[in-house]
Design a protein around this nucleic acid. Structure first.
Length: 491
RNA sequence: GGGCCGGUAGCUAAGCUGGUAUAGCACCGCCCUUUUAAGGCGGCCGCCGAGAGUUCGACUCUCUCCCGGCUCACCA
């Protein structure tokens, strides 16, 4: 079947070449875009031809309606679609012959004037037709589009051709990232790039991907976070740095997890986590307002309001609010007993801090629909954050939850080298996979040279884009999400 | 990794309580100089995800496997 279609197209190509036409020429001078012409001529009179208003434009043929010696077609360019009108006597014999060999899916260039059809559609009356690229395979069906999710992700180009809203999502993604850069640059943050391949994977609790450097004869890890390198830059004297780049985590995939995902991390000298709260709220509000002119968006049928200030509550208080358990007055055993009493089942953990976190994740997290700052995390689960100034069991850390999902993570950065070393060693003890949890002594050495107090913040860009494009799955905001190869051809 | 659902023509789908399959779009031929899901007439296209089993006979029933979606677990 596919071969028959291909065979037909190969024949057609041959005929086109025999007529002296190159089906794959080199360039075409474009003088206008579809969407702009539609807007400009939306008020012209029906039936009137503006013979002076001649444009050249190019795009992919999306539909064809032939009428003997005339025809209508739509072409799609990077911004939209416009209707073309072809007439045998206007195109001349050669032009008409070429038109007859045109298929849906081909790229063509046209030159013609503007008019409005009887039914009121702004169209171009084509006087010159140029074939720009012959398609050998058919496009997905024209009014149901492409709905097979597997093909949509594997052959994203077909998804982009058939489903216009997909392109919109990625336009918005690009604008969001541009706005983040603009916002941070206006605040004197410097954009930097740090290594993607680490000899010791650090900066987060996650399993890394392994790779191997032949010349150095050593194992390397794809980074799980840029954190430790960015803080080395703060040691080096940069006062405000950020990086927007990929992290890689060798863990399960889901509607909100892709093995490679995009993170914003930033560090600001002389600031603490309270400053990071302000900055986070300001950043989100700025982006949402700039994009939509309002602080509210609809995500999966729920209205989410990003206007400042957001609710801020400590993890312990949020647990108390939800369960009535006041962890502050209890020791580990007491907290365990309270859980039993309230029928809250958590996986076994080895400290009170971890247990509070488990309760939080189990009971509170899913209820945090509106942007909420959960602050003051247990020290046991936060090895890179500074102790809370008035409570040694806690650290100055917060996470932002939106629609029940962790969307940002920030702390007053730990800059005491001795404390940091101890926490790393404790971490290595706790984690069984010692070979993956090597202590980054080079980072300790950096801290020993002195790092100013600093606030740090990380925001998951993919999740942010999901909220702002109403995308239910992370795969909808990543152009080429990770997939198992389908067959030997690896499509 | 567990559970649920799915994979039929290039695309979108129908069929199956067992008798090798149906439609629309696309594609090919013909008619048609303002159509837009254009229309009319005729035609082409399927290892029914892969393999094994049951059966006279399997797209349909059973098992195994592959790929995907959702979900749970791990995580961001």
């Amino acid at each position: 079947m596919e071969n028959d279609l291909l065979q037909e197209r190969i024949e057609k190509l041959k005929k086109i070449r025999e007529a002296g036409i190159n089906p794959y020429p080199y360039r075409f001078e474009v003088s206008a875009k579809t969407k702009i012409l539609l807007e400009k001529y939306k008020d012209i009179e029906i039936g009137k031809h503006l013979e002076e208003d001649i444009y050249s434009l190019a795009g992919r043929v999306m539909s064809l309606r032939e009428h003997g010696k005339s025809a209508f077609a739509h072409i799609k360019d990077g911004v939209g679609k416009i209707q073309l009108y072809f007439k045998a006597d206007l195109l001349g014999e050669n032009g008409w012959d070429l038109f007859k060999k045109t298929d849906i899916g081909d790229f063509i260039g046209v030159k013609g004037d503007m008019f409005k059809t009887r039914t009121g559609e702004v169209s171009i009356r084509v006087k010159e037709l140029t074939l720009l690229s012959k398609a050998m395979l058919p496009l997905p069906e024209k009014w149901h589009g492409l709905s097979n999710v597997e093909i949509r992700y594997r052959q994203r180009y077909l998804d982009l051709i058939a489903n216009p809203e997909v392109m919109d999502t990625f336009y918005i993604r690009s604008r969001i990232i541009k706005l983040i850069r603009k916002f941070l640059e206006e605040k004197d943050f410097l954009e930097v790039e740090t290594p993607m391949m680490h000899s010791i994977p650090g900066g987060a609790a996650a399993k890394p991907f392994k790779t191997f450097h032949n010349a150095l004869g050593m194992e390397l890890f794809m980074r799980i976070a840029p954190e430790l390198f960015l803080k080395r830059l703060i040691v080096g004297g940069f006062e405000r740095v950020f990086e927007i780049n990929r992290n890689f985590r060798n863990e399960g995939m889901s509607i909100k997890h892709n093995p490679e995902f995009t993170m914003l991390e930033l560090y600001q000298a002389y600031a603490d986590y309270n400053d990071m709260m302000e900055l986070t709220e300001e950043l989100f509000e700025y982006i949402v307002k700039t994009l939509f002119g309002s602080t509210k968006v609809i995500y999966q049928e729920k209205e989410i309001d990003f206007s400042r200030p957001w609710k801020r509550i400590s993890m312990a208080d949020s647990v108390k609010e939800a369960t009535g358990i006041d962890a502050a007055g209890l020791d580990f055993e007491g907290l365990k007993a309270a859980c039993r009493e309230k029928n809250i089942h958590t996986p076994p953990v080895s400290s009170k801090g971890e247990l509070i976190n488990e309760i939080f994740e189990k009971v509170v997290e899913a209820t945090l629909i509106q942007p909420t700052i959960i602050k003051d995390y247990p020290i046991e689960i936060s090895p890179l954050a500074k102790q809370k100034r008035d409570d040694a069991a806690l650290v100055e850390r917060f996470e932002v939850f939106i629609f029940g999902r962790e969307t940002a993570n920030a702390f007053s950065e730990l800059n005491d080298p001795l404390d940091q070393k101890e926490r790393f060693l404790k971490q290595v003890d706790v984690e069984k996979e010692a070979e993956l949890k090597k202590v980054d002594y080079d980072y300790i050495t950096a801290l020993e040279h002195g790092m100013p107090p600093a606030g740090g913040l990380g925001i998951g860009i993919d999740r942010m884009v999901m909220f702002l494009t109403n995308s239910p799955s992370i795969r909808d905001v990543i152009l080429f999400p990770q997939m198992r190869p389908k067959d030997e051809e690896g499509i």
